[in-house]
Design a protein around this nucleic acid. Structure first.
Length: 119
DNA sequence: CTTCTTACA
DNA sequence: TGTAAGAA
């Protein structure tokens, strides 16, 4: 199938699909015309990429992590133990980010609470 | 009509 | 990431 069909079947824009390829996430063949040719398995591949992207992983991380994962029905399951380690680190980073945002929000709340009427 | 690349009021 | 432009 060509990019248009893959886009329709995955709900991912053609722009994004070309970007994924640029990042090494997909390696479609090329027809002499230059058109990209995707295989059926790429539909599932794109879904996995989406899941990881939504989980906050960068495309670079996904490139390394993807080969260590397998489709367990509808979910993604990590195979390599070292991968689980990286995922845990990623989870911790998110936790840290949440804490920082909570702190900045608290600062904002304080400032808002200081509102005073103009005399 | 579909895709490709490149570039950005 | 979207989108416009010019070419195939």
């Amino acid at each position: 199938m060509r990019i248009g069909e893959l886009s329709r079947r995955t709900g991912v824009s053609e722009r994004a699909l070309r970007y994924y390829e640029e990042q090494g996430l997909l390696r479609p063949e090329r027809r002499p015309s230059g058109y990209r040719v995707y295989r059926d398995v790429d539909v599932a591949a794109v879904r996995r990429i989406r899941v990881l992207l939504t989980a906050g992983l960068s495309t670079a991380q996904i490139v390394e992590v993807l080969p260590c994962m397998v489709d367990d029905d509808d979910l993604l399951a990590p195979i390599c133990p070292e991968l689980v380690d990286e995922l845990v680190k990623q989870r911790d980073r998110i936790g840290a980010a949440i804490d920082e945002l909570a702190a900045t929000r608290a600062n904002l709340d304080t400032i808002i609470a200081n509102e005073r009427r103009a005399s």
